[in-house]
Design a protein around this nucleic acid. Structure first.
Length: 187
DNA sequence: TGCCCGATTAACT
DNA sequence: GTTAATCGGGCAA
């Protein structure tokens, strides 16, 4: 299991270290294959403008889930990092499904395994994550986080879907994974 | 109180 | 490649 100390480090250290770990919610989930890092000094981060009611969890201690509504339709989940008040977090963007496949297929309404969790809004739907999970500890049920079982080769690239600070290479992924939201550019 | 727009997705042409 | 769906946060007035 991951520990509080895991998250109490630089967001740029935690983000690549999360690749290959397993995220389960009520026993349903898979291996994290894609994330993005956000820091409060980063114009693209929700915390950039200071604390608000929406981003309050980001300004709290590390090791907690920050969940927000995206485009009025989807939920997206972040892991809060560094020390309390640093307002940095890692956006979970894609999983390789491993546990509870039947439940995820029913929630998503698709059969294709590669379509279950290959995007930030998709994986929250598959895992049943909603605003109810905002502020929950990442180290206690219903959330489980397991250390990576094998070493992975990490790919980096620019972040997706943002309009500010688009040149920062703060997207991290499992190189060559078939479960990414988008492939990483070839070297 | 009103208006704008987004860390997205799926269904189009 | 383009675009509708959909809604609450954030900020101006």
């Amino acid at each position: 299991m991951l520990t509080r100390a895991f998250f109490n480090r630089s967001v740029h250290t935690v983000a690549p270290d999360l690749i290959g770990t397993t995220l389960l919610v009520d026993g349903v989930g898979g291996v994290i294959v894609e994330v993005e890092a956000y820091h409060h000094t980063d114009p693209a981060a929700h915390s950039y403008g200071g604390p608000t009611s929406r981003n309050a969890v980001m300004f709290g201690p590390p090791g907690y889930a920050y969940v927000y509504r995206s485009y009025g339709i989807h939920w997206c989940v972040n892991f809060v990092c560094e020390e309390a008040g640093s307002a940095s977090a890692v956006l979970i963007r894609a999983l390789e499904p491993t546990d509870g496949l039947a439940i995820m297929r029913r929630r998503r309404g698709v059969m294709d395994e590669r379509a279950l969790c290959s995007g930030p809004g998709k994986l929250t739907e598959a895992l049943g994550i909603t605003s109810d999970h905002n502020g929950l500890s990442l180290l206690a049920p219903p959330i489980r986080l397991y250390d990576r079982a094998v070493t992975t080769e990490i790919a980096t690239g620019v972040r997706i879907g943002i309009t500010k600070a688009t040149d920062l290479p703060w997207r991290y992924g499992w190189k060559g994974s078939r479960f990414l939201s988008k492939p990483f550019a070839a070297e």
